[in-house]
Design a protein around this nucleic acid. Structure first.
Lengths: 249, 249
DNA sequence: CTTATATTTTAGTACATACTAACTTTTTGG
DNA sequence: CCAAAAAGTTAGTATGTACTAAAATATAAG
């Protein structure tokens, strides 16, 4: 493994990561979607994709989109591993706010050596999820790829555990944090306006309202024990405290 | 100050740092010297220097060399601050070997935000020197610019305290570490072969021999209380004009 | 002072990465 | 099924950073 690849630049790595995040099963990542995610003109993306294809890191179907090859996927996963370990480290060892760490990690992930990453992982006790609940790929490139449901998809009465949320928008994260919504939090949908209106839910004991744009970026693990029935009020008792991942706070 | 400079790339920053390290008082940094230090062809350096001059970061005298402007110096000092804090952090908090951190720091220094640097500095207790004894500039850009004497310049009988050493060559650092030579160590010159021959000295209680190429990269603070015993006197000498050592790889 | 050598710059080129404008292909909605 | 919209590509250009080869200038040696 890890043949002496002609050292990609940071930008090229970013493309691979973006493709990884945008391709969904069979559907390849669209050029425009990539362009928007990367903040780059679509034409420029086309060019770079050709280069990456030449390097054997992506497969491009003309006019249809791109997907990663196995080597490309390996590069993307390593980059994601670096990103998430750095985020975890910055939050737990250097006191960064969890809503503020994404940008810093985006810069460092291209500069950090494998040795640095493994040392950070070690002092953190080899965490399996970052502060936003995102799973951390292993050094060998294995990752938990479970897909969770968006909060926006839950129906009133449903209970769930917050699994993860997007880390890309500090404002969103502060908004969520202000409402107690963080990985591991237990929630219950109380009401839902039609036509993408706000969602009313209980977080812990507090009742909160959540804008749909925010709800779309929070993913949950449905919790059968709560969602079974929708009794409007009910004594909270003996919920098992289950915190799978070693994330902070 | 700190006007919104058009975000330098990492390479440009490296040039400024190299100029800072190569200019000596009035003498500007030579293009060839820069090229060698940066591992880049001299012609390329000429080109970059013109760009840096356009940006107001260096002053170039055609065919004579370059020196930093005040803004250029400020950029260089911030980069050096980042480098040295990162080195200190990696060694003390992440268990890196002190002879192995230079390369890692070279990469990270361009990616680390001011906030990260200040947080690292804080957990380290705002150190004033890095693991190799190099002074760390303050966030405001002040730095201890004392020049020390090279070990190679000491005469037999002279005693001294090791102040600092080059961090650029891991092999050199391991060589020195193997002989107990590190910042703070007390030494005493016992004998010195003529014509740049090896130097015999006492480090702590141990007697060691030091190759001249290594000695040239170790700087000391002469210790009058020990050197008093020496028969040979030296009257304020040695400007470190000599660049005999071709270090690295 | 004059020439040989060392140093530095210019000229011409290449590559990675970005852009805008114009064109091509695919998808969609009537 | 076809025209308009959406998506994607090509063409031509710019910038930063590198290179080699050749020319210009400075310095050192006689």
């Amino acid at each position: 493994m890890t043949k002496p690849r002609p050292e990609l630049t940071g930008q090229a790595e970013d493309y691979l990561k973006a493709i990884y995040e945008l391709e969904r099963g069979d559907a390849p990542a669209g050029t425009n979607a990539l362009a928007e995610r990367l903040g780059i003109a679509a034409a420029s993306v086309s060019g770079m994709l050709q280069r990456l294809a030449r390097l054997g890191l992506v497969k491009t179907e003309r006019y249809r989109g791109s997907r990663l090859t196995e080597p490309g996927r390996a590069v993307a996963l390593q980059l994601i591993r670096r990103h998430r370990i750095i985020e975890s480290y910055l939050v737990t060892r250097l006191g960064f706010a969890w809503d503020d760490v994404h940008h810093e990690a985006e810069q460092l992930e291209h500069a950090a050596s494998p040795e640095l990453i493994e040392r950070m992982a070690k002092v953190l006790g080899n965490p399996t999820a970052d502060p936003h609940g995102a799973p951390i790929p292993t050094a060998e490139g294995r990752v938990d790829e479970r897909r969770f449901e968006s909060i926006a998809a839950l129906e009133p009465g449903a209970g769930a555990r917050v699994a993860r949320m997007s880390d890309r928008d500090p404002k969103l994260l502060r908004y969520l944090a202000g409402r107690g919504i963080r990985p591991g939090a237990r929630i219950r949908i109380e009401a839902k306006e039609p036509f993408d209106g706000p969602i009313v839910l209980t977080v812990g004991r507090e009742r909160q309202t959540l804008a749909p744009g925010a709800a779309a970026n929070v993913w949950v693990e449905p919790d059968a024990s709560v969602s079974a029935a929708a009794p409007k009020s009910r004594a909270r008792g003996g919920t098992p405290k289950r915190r799978a991942s070693g994330n902070s706070r």
